[in-house]
Design a protein around this nucleic acid. Sequence first.
DNA 1: AATAAAATTTAGATTAGTCTAAATTTATTA
DNA 2: TAATAAATTTAGACTAATCTAAATTTTATT
Lengths: 216, 216
Amino acid sequence: MNTLAEENYLKSIYHLSLNAENVSTNQLAALLNTKASSVTDMLKKLADKELINYTPYQGVTLTPPGEKIAINIIRKHRLWEFFLVEKLNFKWDEVHEMAEEMEHISSNELIDRLDRFMGYPKYDPHGDPIPDCDGKFKVHDLKPVSAIEINESGIICGVRDHSAGFLQYLEKQGLTIGKKIKVEDIIEFDRSMILQMETKTVQISREVANNLLITL
Amino acid sequence: MNTLAEENYLKSIYHLSLNAENVSTNQLAALLNTKASSVTDMLKKLADKELINYTPYQGVTLTPPGEKIAINIIRKHRLWEFFLVEKLNFKWDEVHEMAEEMEHISSNELIDRLDRFMGYPKYDPHGDPIPDCDGKFKVHDLKPVSAIEINESGIICGVRDHSAGFLQYLEKQGLTIGKKIKVEDIIEFDRSMILQMETKTVQISREVANNLLITL
DNA sequence: AATAAAATTTAGATTAGTCTAAATTTATTA
DNA sequence: TAATAAATTTAGACTAATCTAAATTTTATT
Ligand SMILES: [Mn+2]
Ligand SMILES: [Mn+2]
Ligand SMILES: [Mn+2]
Ligand SMILES: [Mn+2]
């Protein structure tokens, strides 16, 4: 099996791969809160294990086995987050750090039973898709609120920023997963947006609009 | 916080302390599957942290803070075992290894909520008491089946050996937690015992009788 | 009490993961 | 395209946890 550090590197490479073909040493160092030199060492180790394709100075990609491991860790992370919110009544901004530990519990039998126990949820508390036991999941096509025009509407289905502060802010505004919103106006000056909701109207900055994801 | 290795040492010292005042280096090495020299190194470290009282060559005892940590880990271990059996339908012989990993999940808030979620269970699947969030628990006074006489009876409340093999054997014989048994006969030759149960009669070796615990 | 055996500690290495500082390679820009 | 800046790797060191082999201390046995 793989060490905790190896698993965290694979997971990070997977996440960064969604935005760029090749993942760079510095991107990993920033995400993992470590130094570039430490990253280089680990990349050599993962390349030796054939979990990544590594060309010095050129960044890395996951091999199929490496991707499989990464997706399995993400599956565990999101299922545990779902458990913490749905069964233990934690709030969506409280669960990430705990899930960071729990995702490394090794048993797949355990996670498959947890999945069944919860009724095979498709999305985690932040709207992210939960891979099934074969690693398959829908990548539903979300766009930031900032990408739609006046009078267009959508349903909140995810967030780009997972920080507790941002999630708490959204919670307070009632901007949570599943809520329907419609753009009532866009302020010229700073392009902040006025959103019409079920029972009220809220104004959000461009920054927030960029990090709040919807389906049409 | 403490490392995983430190937590495992404290837990092992706690368990061994139940049978002997001072815990020796070799006892720990045997239980932790490591070498005596490694144990010595760790004992120095734990003594520096004031989690154990260590006198070279004389063995160790836990300090109050050390004991508190040990009991908290045991609480987590047993609550997770209960969860795995009661909620995820694992068998009692399947959960120990998973709980060995899960007991190191750090959040106490998580474990307290898990405790509530399950209705504050008092005993784990093997009959061992689960400490409450203050570390308190009943040490109910059990005796091995081998300690009672012909015609005496009792209720199975625990096991001394927690190995999967032993637990599976008991399961197959129907000798599980809560079952009532009565000693029908003791064979002279090897002191094996014939137990009368609800619907049948089973014969167990002295070895088994020594490891099966009952209340009267 | 002297000697042998057992238990324990010390000495010196090793591995995983990390770090700083220096060297090297790649990318940018004048 | 030559100089400069940025990114990355290499070199050398450190900590935690482990090991083997040797030295020391305690315990048991003549
Ligand atoms: Mn998360
Ligand atoms: Mn999530
Ligand atoms: Mn157990
Ligand atoms: Mn147990």
